[in-house]
Design a protein around this nucleic acid. Structure first.
Length: 431
RNA sequence: GUGGGUGUAGCUCAGUGGUAGAGCACUGGAUUGUGGCUCCAGUUGUCGGGGGUUCAAUUCCCCUCAUCCACCCCA
């Protein structure tokens, strides 16, 4: 086979796709309870949108984007959903129509990373964004929503981590404080982090290197240099989470790789080690500057998150079941195939799932397959049936069969059979 | 981008320096037109690709590709 899926991209096929639909439905239902409506934005955006909003120095922009030039347009297949949603919010003048906007999205994102467990080059995120509410009530709602989804789909153990990056010049002041802390220790840091001292000292905080972690223990906390307003905001968030009974961990070392975050920052991580290094299931935070930076005339506060659907699916057991046919048609000779097709058509119009076996195999093989589908009924049509203008309908659950005429009441007769208990004693009924 | 593991039938995997096996699945039959259990029979492989060593390579060596995992980064 010479034509394969592109590296890091995989096909989602039945029966796995049933699990995906289930997860997406869980997410939609919960998001809609919180007042979110779906925003479907293009997969392709101007490269500049991501360069400016995610940040020029970030790994995502620097080396992971699928970018190309088409005529004179510089385009990028979206590596995340927030920037595109914010662009749509500004472009469509949504702030003029409503004071607060709540959008959710579900879809593929693209990053050219080296594939690993729970990480693909085309991966899928579901996320929410709120524009026009500076919180912290909606910050708490957003985190509650994430927890609701994670719990609804049955993730076993998870923890919620929160932090605040402050606003205004807090980030810069904190950065300076970190440089002051790490610079004298530079030669004790890992090779990777030695470079970060100058470029991105925040990232040293979540380094996996043991040495870095030890040195980060005594690093100044961003929470100590928040100004009064930022502190009040963060305390407000904590109060609301407490009121909701949501457990969380304040982690001043929580930082994120995208530059656009301000104030509230949070992650939901699995406590199982099933995902290896990819333990973050949900990441989000506030990005109060983005809308304005996109050219909107006034600042609009915003908060959002994205959850990694592959990661969540790999942790949960989907209850999704492959649909079972009501009726499996097994024409025993070519002349009976047309009738089978017509009868199936009538049942399908009436809302029933039917299978028609047109392979011309032995009755045994067709029955086996009907059984493999766990079909409730199997309709056999052969020479006798054609001659008498009837069909033989076998109830595979009750192990009995009868002959049905093909009058107007055919659909009704089949429905009556479907409505019977699966066994004589009536204990179980066909859901 | 760096490091490691794996690549044998449709699937899951055994195996050997002398050109390959099991289970599952599939098809036929035991039941001339009737399923889930059982039994019998049968189909399928360029042993990832290329090169080298050898009388002989699926097996040993090198390269390459794919894949998985770790680092990095992120959801």
């Amino acid at each position: 086979m010479e034509l394969r899926a592109v590296r890091g991209m995989k096909d989602i096929l039945p029966p796995e796709s049933w699990d995906w639909q289930w997860l997406e439905t869980c997410f939609r239902e919960i998001a809609e309870r919180y007042g979110f409506g779906e925003a479907r934005t293009p997969l392709l955006e101007a490269t500049q949108l991501f360069v400016r909003e995610i940040g020029e120095g970030t790994d995502v922009v620097e080396k992971e984007m699928y970018s190309f030039e088409r005529h004179s347009d510089h385009l990028t297949v979206r590596p995340e959903g927030t920037a595109g949603a914010a662009r749509a919010y500004v472009q469509n003048s949504v702030s003029g129509r409503e004071p607060v906007t709540r959008w959710y999205y579900i879809g593929p994102m693209f990053r050219a990373e080296r594939p690993a467990k729970g990480r693909y080059r085309q991966f899928h995120q579901a996320g929410c964004e709120i524009y026009g509410d500076e919180g912290p009530v909606c910050d708490a709602e957003i985190i509650a929503l994430c927890a609701d989804v994670i719990e609804a789909v049955g993730v076993d153990g998870y923890s919620i981590h929160i932090n605040s990056l402050g606003s205004g010049d807090t980030r810069e002041r904190y950065r300076d404080a970190l440089v002051k802390h790490f610079l004298p220790l530079k030669d004790q840091l890992s090779e990777e982090s030695q470079r970060r001292v100058e470029t991105n000292p925040l990232r040293i905080l979540d380094s996996k290197s043991k040495a870095d972690q030890a040195l980060a223990e005594d690093a100044p906390s961003v929470l100590d240099i928040l100004d009064d307003a930022d502190r009040a905001h963060f305390d407000g968030l904590r109060r609301h989470l407490d009121a909701l009974g949501i457990d969380y961990i304040v982690d001043h070392k929580l930082v994120r790789g995208l530059d656009y975050y301000t104030r509230t920052l949070f992650e939901l991580k699995t406590t199982s080690d099933a995902l290896g290094a990819q333990s973050t299931l949900v990441g989000g935070g506030r990005y109060d500057k983005m809308v304005e930076s996109l050219g909107h005339k006034k600042p609009v506060p915003a908060i959002g998150f994205a959850m990694g659907l592959e990661r969540i699916l790999s942790l949960v057991q989907s209850p999704a079941e492959v649909p079972k046919p009501a009726c499996y048609f097994a024409p025993m000779m070519p002349e009976a195939q047309g009738l089978a097709l017509q009868l199936a058509h009538r049942l399908r119009k009436a809302g029933h799932y039917c299978e028609v076996d047109g392979r011309g195999l032995s009755v045994r093989a067709m029955m086996r397959r009907a059984n493999g589908f766990d079909s409730r009924l199997c309709v056999l049509i052969g020479e006798d049936e054609l001659a008498k203008e009837t069909v033989t309908v076998k109830d595979l659950a009750r192990r009995e069969q009868e002959s049905l005429t093909l009058g107007d009441d055919f659909v009704g007769r089949i429905e009556a059979m479907l409505a019977r208990p699966r066994s004589e004693d009536g204990a179980e009924t066909d859901g």
